[in-house]
């Protein structure tokens, strides 16, 4: 595999074009930017030029939301080729995708849909990751999902499933701590138990985001992964605990909807950086 640089173990932010002028004027921009791959699949134009400018001042992470790694059918060869062209063009420090499906029978649903954790699913997910890593000529990171439903057919836990994927494909993991908190509330488990079972040694990057808390018809809390607000205190606490175990890791603040002013987003990144710095000093 081609050798690539690494994301620094610092805070990064999801890039929004509205923030571009302030980012390039900032005295200290975040250490890395993450972009959704599918927004940069045009042949040319200003969006690619912005990405080049960003990559000149910070590391770059390409995060796919449409590969449908958990899809029943073979991966979309055209889409995989487009991902390869994007990685070839911008040479990002990493590429990540989700443990989810988003395409079925040619229709793209624009959402990260849940999988039953079975041996058959495991075989398919591993084959798709092998193929992706071969075509992109790099290791990828796989992200744990936010889910609202479970399946009767599941034969293993999500953490066992991810551990098996890592063992078989050699991929890294992207640990989304907000997704853990969302799933814990929605499926009635302790987030700390999940994290204790998570293969932390395979984690290459962390995601932090905000979620919406709703009440279902029985009055139970229902958390929805909305990426539309600051990271909540529960997630910050768990994050500090994880970092205390793993040491500093590249950490992304994701804020995709109701995007705030740059200063608000930058402050969230500073908060993550403060935790990372403290851990680096303590270590």
């Amino acid at each position: 595999m081609t050798h690539h640089g690494h994301l620094p173990p610092r805070a990064g932010v999801g890039f929004k074009p509205a923030h571009f002028p302030e980012i390039v004027a900032a005295a200290q921009p975040p250490a890395f930017f993450e972009v959704h791959a599918e927004n940069y699949m045009g042949a040319g134009g200003p969006s690619h030029r912005q990405l080049e400018r960003l990559h000149a001042i910070a590391a770059l992470s390409v995060h796919g939301v449409g590969l449908s790694i958990g899809g029943d059918a073979p991966l979309d060869a055209d889409h995989l080729a487009a991902l390869a062209r994007l990685c070839e063009r911008h040479q990002p420090e990493c590429f990540s995708e989700h443990l989810a499906w988003s395409t079925h029978d040619g229709a793209f649903f624009n959402d990260l849909l849940p999988l039953p954790y079975t041996r058959a699913t495991l075989d398919r997910v591993c084959a798709h990751i092998d193929q992706t890593q071969t075509v992109l000529r790099r290791r990828m990171w796989l992200e744990n999902p936010a889910t609202y439903l479970l399946f009767d057919a599941s034969e293993m836990s999500e953490t066992d499933f991810l551990r098996a994927v890592v063992r078989r494909t050699g991929c890294g993991l992207l640990l989304d701590i907000n997704n853990v908190v969302v799933c814990a509330a929605n499926h009635g488990f302790e987030a700390r138990d999940y994290l204790a079972a998570f293969p932390l040694d395979a984690v290459q990057e962390i995601h932090l985001a905000g979620h919406d808390e709703q009440r279902d018809e029985h009055g139970h809390a229902l958390l929805v992964d909305t990426h539309d607000r600051p990271v909540c205190d529960d997630v910050w606490r768990l994050y500090a605990e994880v970092i205390a175990t793993t040491g500093p890791l590249p950490t992304l603040i994701e804020w995709d909807n109701d995007v705030p002013a740059w200063s608000v987003l930058a402050r969230q990144a500073e908060r993550a950086d403060a935790i990372l710095l403290r851990e680096a000093v303590d270590a």
């Binding site: 649903f109 624009n110 959402d111 849909l113 039953p116 609202y148 439903l149 479970l150 399946f151 009767d152 057919a153 599941s154 929605n186 499926h187 009635g188 279902d216 018809e217 029985h218 139970h220 809390a221 229902l222 929805v224």
Partner: peptide, 24 residues
């Protein structure tokens, strides 16, 4: 084959996905 361990019905949970897809 859908399962819900706490709280509301599978219908209510499935509705979140439906809404994410269509409204999105």
């Amino acid at each position: 084959g859908l399962r819900v361990r706490v709280g509301a019905s599978a219908e209510a949970r499935f509705a979140i996905y439906r809404n994410n897809v269509v409204s999105g």
